[in-house]
Design a protein around this nucleic acid. Structure first.
Lengths: 194, 194, 194, 194
DNA sequence: AATGAATGAGATTTCATTCAT
DNA sequence: CATGAATGAAATCTCATTCAT
């Protein structure tokens, strides 16, 4: 009965379509909304096709996470090799869309073991990378964020950016401007002391 | 299908039973597991009864959040009036179970508008309360976490404790010990400078 | 939109309705047709209700088998205590509907472990019961089906009745009349020799 | 999604591969497991190719049945022309793999009309063939399985072998040894009386 | 001749929710 | 006050089958 218009696509295109829809859902409505059905609807194709490309929902989520974290890794590397690595790093950390997605995956990880492993791996890599750059500044400073290791500092920065996003999402903003300013001020000190 | 034993309970008792089950589920399996069915099962009563006391799932979640945040508020007040308010505050912030539940509600808030309002209200109150105590130390210090307002400082502390919990939950620990040590060191400075 | 006529039934009635529908499907279209959906449709109720009474499809099938085998056991006992137990037994064995259902369960057992256990248990009980009666005649005979134990004889009778049903179902009848006549003749000998 | 290796095969070879996979599935997991998908997977080729060679699932099953029954016919003829036809026949009848497959098709026939016709045709042919050989022994005997026609006797033998297989499959063995011994004893008598 | 892409239908199961008692 | 009975909707996943290339 329906207009049986069979659209023929490149697999890469179809996959990208699906992952894009999943990402959109995750950001707009949270990971709970990422069902095969919903993804198919948003992507404008049948749910059977989603299963054709991603055998299980776990597979879909893992692939989405990989795509996301690969992209993030590129951004991070770019930031760390910028002229002003510290500010670029903080700018990367506080990118709203990126961090929102990261937080969502973090929440999802509590319920999907497969994601847990992926996240853990990626986070360690990212933290080590950040630490390597931070080390150059911290060593030179001697003062400032004294006493905190590069890894610890990276962890602190991540904490603040994540919480900024999470709280903003639910409408909390008290202290945000001050906290942001403080972080930037401290990073500024580090930079100048080198 | 079960034995028709009509158990007669005090409404308050029944509600408490239900909220307890919901809290347990939330902590053990995440907010996604808090379905009326699951709650009823854990509490050992029918899902119809859950609906009888909490018309919708939203109602149940809001009530649970209120109970949780009221309790938290008590703990927070106790901490802030302790002999060593700074350490007591940090101890409160890093209480695993409490913070885990808080983070779960924060994640949930992304998907349930009603929770958002509740969280926002509670968070502002808690932040102001913390700020009032922090102010006494920050004013006296002049140095230390210089340049960050009490509200900002509260926000920073919350960020770190939340991220410690979230990352630990997914198996990340890189930098954790250092970050913890750093926070305690800084709080120590503040305390002694007064 | 639909006429939301909520029919309220006794659980026993509902269960019986469901099991009846499942039995009908099994006989008419084979065990492969016994899906929760199909059963619900035939019984005229929602598939959710089927799940309400039988948590899994396995449960439904096991319950159906138990109902069937319990009923069979009654019939068997009646037959064995009839005036002419041998003929009554054969008549029981060759009851088309009963045996057809038994054969269907036998086929089903190959794919559902739970059924296997149930069938095995029931079959052994039934065979022992038949053997006890057959023993009285075989001992007295000395000749006739000489050399075959009561249990073996029961097995042989079951074999023939099952195959009569299976072959008839697919349209084979060659040799059927002769085989039937032979069995009856041999049973007749046994009876008279006592 | 896989590497686009276009394997070029002889049609006959491909068909044989497919039928082999289907037969394996049927024996290992029952006819319910014989889906186009599953067959393709076991055979290591795409489900589209299975459809290319066998338009519908029915076609596939019919072809498999034909291949099976043709092979069986050869075995049967060999048996009937052996030195000791009776024992060879019984040995043929009780061949586990062969009979298991036969029983599976019999069960399948209840749900697929096309198979029914095929089975019926083959069974009649096989029964007549067996009857012709049995007749030589039964005529000579006069006693023994007296009163049962060759066709009836063939039917009886088939019944027992089938039930032995079916019951063994679900874990029933009570009376099996006795029944087997009895059949062999009776066949022995027939042979010697000639 | 062969196959990857695509789909509608249907299977099992869980959920929130509504009634009737 | 409490609950068993009932349901529609949606989740995940499998299947047979059809195209377009």
């Amino acid at each position: 009965m329906k207009s049986t218009k069979r659209v023929r696509r490149e697999p890469a295109e179809a996959k990208s379509l699906i992952l894009g829809a999943a990402e959109k859902l995750m950001l707009d409505e949270g990971y709970g909304a990422v069902s095969v059905r919903a993804v198919a609807k948003v992507a404008g194709l049948s749910s059977a096709l989603v299963h054709y490309y991603f055998e299980t929902t776990d597979d879909l989520l893992v692939m989405l996470y990989r795509r996301t974290s690969d992209r993030d890794m590129e951004y991070l590397k770019d930031a760390l090799s910028a002229d002003d690595p510290l500010m670029a790093l903080w700018s990367y950390q506080t990118d709203a869309a990126r961090t929102a997605l990261g937080v969502e995956f973090l929440a999802l990880a509590n319920h999907r073991k497969v994601i847990r492993t992926e996240i853990s791996r990626h986070a360690q890599r990212a933290r080590r990378l950040q630490a390597k750059t931070l080390a150059r500044f911290l060593d030179a400073a001697g003062a400032g964020v004294k006493g905190c290791s590069p890894e610890g500092t990276s962890m602190l920065l991540t904490s603040v950016s994540r919480n900024l996003i999470m709280e903003t999402a639910v409408g909390i903003s008290l202290g945000h401007a001050d906290a942001r300013a403080y972080i930037i001020q401290e990073l500024g000190k580090l930079r100048s002391q080198r």
